[in-house]
Amino acid sequence: MSQHPVSPPAGHATSSAAMVRTLGVVATVCGILIVSAYQGTLERVTANKRIALERAVFRVIPGAASMREFVASRAGVVPAAEGAGAEGGVRFYAAYDAAGQLKGIAAEAAAMGYADLVRVLYAYDPRRQAITGIGVVSHRETPGIGDKIITDAAFLTNFAALDVRLNADLSALANTVKTVKHGTRRHPWEIDAISGATVTSKAVGRGINDSAQRLLPLLAPNLDKLGRPAGRQEASP
């Protein structure tokens, strides 16, 4: 591009104006195409995202029929639409059964696994102060080894009632959730790793601990605010 300007032979030259005009027209046409595609698909994409999220939440909280999204922060717990910008806010989902009773809380946990972030959704039962189930949201672990966290029945029983009690002053978990070597689980707050997939198992434990340590202390004083406001029925697909 650093060639000396050579005056092009007359007749073959394209004027700069023609080039700008062409690119301008092309850019305009393309811009219109993109905007219309975006507008045309926006509704479906948002709906898809909500359905996928609901499906994931309902899978970890069996019996749930509807859900609402909240953000917990130092200022309290507010619906996600109002509290999106809250500083230090942690997003979570409250799930309700058909009668409108709170069934459980779901939140996302993520930590670095063997290849990439392992993202899981865990269900928290405020009455038992325990995690009652997990579902893997996304991962890129080795097939046949790391992806056992989705299928390994023995591993999943760790999360039937994983103890996440808060300490006396409600500032943190009473016991750090941690993943221990396969076959050495002693306490209800420990996770028994999958033999041969220790790195991925540890990522799940670390992610849940990080997320629970942040979310549960913020959530504990505000549990009463999660009750569904009367007269406001949300349709569930």
């Binding site: 595609a37 975006y38 045309g40 698909t41 479906r44 994409v45 898809n48 995202k49 996928a52």
Partner: peptide, 9 residues
């Protein structure tokens, strides 16, 4: 956009 609208998965 189209693929995201058809199937998020």
């Amino acid at each position: 956009y189209l693929i995201a609208a058809i199937s998020l998965e």
